[in-house]
Design a protein around this nucleic acid. Structure first.
Lengths: 227, 227
DNA sequence: GCGGGTCGGATTGTTGGACAATCTCCGCGC
DNA sequence: GCGCGGAGATTGTCCAACAATCCGACCCGC
C-alpha cells in the first residue's frame, strides 16, 4: 500500500512543482478560457496560433490542441485552413445550446425525482439557497451570481446521479457562462433568485415540465435581446 | 457574387483531388474507427502511437490528434502518460451510454411529437420499414442490421429538428455500434424488427415514455449478457 | 523468500524547426 | 468594373529531439 511513498514525498517537497503543472495544454486552455469569459477576447476575435504561442509561451502544436479543446467546449470555432475565432452567442447558437441543455437537465431532473420520491434533492436546495444569499447582497458582482447560478444547475444535474450526463453537461459550461453573462443587463439579482426559488417549488409540484418552462423563460429573455 | 469562379472551376476539374482528401487526421481516424468496429482491434488493446504512425503512415502528432478524436467518440480511452486503449463496452460504460442516449433521444422524440401533432414523422416510419426489410431477408449480415438500426434512431433524432442534439447524438455513434454488435447473439433479426415496429405504435399512443421503455429493454438485454 | 526501493527501457508530453497547402488581399490588365 | 494572378499570411503536416512519466525487472536487507 505504500508503493507511492517516493512520489508522494516529491509532491510534498515541491507542491508547485512540475509534478502538478505539467499539462501545457491544460494551462493554455485555462488561460484562453479565462480571457474569453472575462471579455478580454471578444466574440468573433481571431485566435491566431502564432499569437497564442507568443502570449502563452508554448509550442504551436500545444496551441493547436488547445484550440481544438476550446472548440469542444463551444468557446471557439475552428474552420479548416481558416483558423479559429472566439465563439459568439448569436441566436442560432443560443438555440442549440438550450436544445442540448434541455435534454440533459430534464433527464437529470427526471432521474432525481424518480429516486427521491418526487422531491428535490437537498444538494439542490442548498445550491438555490446559496444563489439566494449571493443575490441578496447589496450590488453583488455579477461574476459571483454566474458562479452561484452555475452551482444550482450543476447540483441539479449531479442529483440525477449520472456521471456521463454530468460530463456531457460540463462541456456546456463555457457556453452556459456566456449565456448568464448575456443575462446581466436583462435580469436583476432579485429576478434571478426569484426564478430559481419558484423552480424548486414547481419541480416538486409538476415534475420536469417545470424545468422546461424555466429554461424556455431564460432562453427567450436573452433571445429577444439578441434580436 | 461570382468571386469564387476559379475555386469552383478547380473543384469541378479535380473532383477527387487533394481538395477533399487532405485531412490526414480524418483519414487516420476513419481507419482506426473501422479497425475497431470490425473487431480487428479488440477492446482493451493498446493503441501505441508508434504503431499508428507505422501502420497508417502519418506523423506522431497526427496520430495523437486522431487518438483524442477517437476518445471524443468513445471508441478509445486516453490516460495521461499511459497511452490509449480500445474502449471496452463494460457494464458501467453501457449504463453511461444509455443515460446520455436516453436524454438526447427522449428530448428529440418530445420535439418531434410536439411538432407533428403527436404523430411519428414519415422519415422515421421509412427508416423502420428499412430495418424491417433488412431483417426479413434470409440470414442478413449483422452489419446491415447495425446500419439499418442506426438509421432508425438517427432518423428519430433528426425528426426532432435540432442540429445541436443531432450533433451530440452523432458523437455516440461509435459506442452505439458497439452496443448493437453486442446485441447480435442476444436478439434475432426478427426480434430487432419487432421491437422497433412496436416502438412506433407505442410512441404515438403513449409519447416519449414508450421510447424510454424501448431503450431500457435493449440496455437490460446487453447488461445481463455482460454479467 | 519477500516486501521494499532502485534502475532502465518504453511510451507519452512538449518543443523547435521546416515545408507544403490553402486562404486572403491587393494590384494588374482587359 | 471585373476577373485573373501573385504575394503574404496562416494553417496543416511532417521530422527530429529531449524531458517527464510509467511500467516491469532487478536487487537488497531483513
Amino acid at each position: 500500500m505504500l508503493r507511492r511513498t517516493l512520489r508522494q514525498y516529491r509532491q510534498v517537497m515541491s507542491p508547485s512543482s512540475p509534478a502538478e503543472a505539467p499539462a501545457a495544454v491544460t494551462r493554455v486552455v485555462a488561460a484562453l478560457r479565462a480571457r474569453i469569459l472575462d471579455g478580454e477576447l471578444a466574440p468573433g476575435d481571431r485566435l491566431v496560433e502564432r499569437m497564442i504561442v507568443e502570449d502563452h509561451d508554448c509550442a504551436r502544436h500545444t496551441a493547436r490542441v488547445a484550440l481544438r479543446t476550446l472548440q469542444e467546449e463551444g468557446l471557439a470555432t475552428v474552420e479548416r485552413n481558416r483558423g479559429a475565432h472566439v465563439a459568439a452567442l448569436d441566436a442560432q447558437r443560443l438555440r442549440g445550446l438550450f436544445e442540448v441543455r434541455t435534454a440533459l437537465e430534464l433527464e437529470s431532473a427526471h432521474r432525481m425525482l424518480e429516486r427521491h420520491d418526487g422531491r428535490v434533492a437537498d444538494e439542490v436546495h442548498r445550491a438555490v439557497a446559496d444563489l439566494d444569499r449571493v443575490c441578496a447582497r447589496s450590488s453583488p458582482p455579477w461574476r459571483a451570481i454566474v458562479e452561484a447560478h452555475e452551482g444550482v444547475h450543476e447540483a441539479l444535474v449531479r442529483a440525477g446521479e449520472s456521471e456521463r450526463i454530468a460530463e456531457a453537461y460540463a462541456r456546456l459550461s463555457g457556453e452556459l457562462r456566456l449565456f448568464v453573462i448575456a443575462l446581466r443587463p436583462l435580469w436583476t439579482p432579485a429576478t434571478m433568485a426569484e426564478h430559481h426559488r419558484r423552480l424548486l417549488a414547481a419541480l416538486e409540484r409538476e415534475g420536469p415540465a417545470a424545468l422546461r418552462r424555466h429554461l424556455v423563460e431564460g432562453e427567450e429573455t436573452v433571445r429577444r435581446a439578441l434580436g
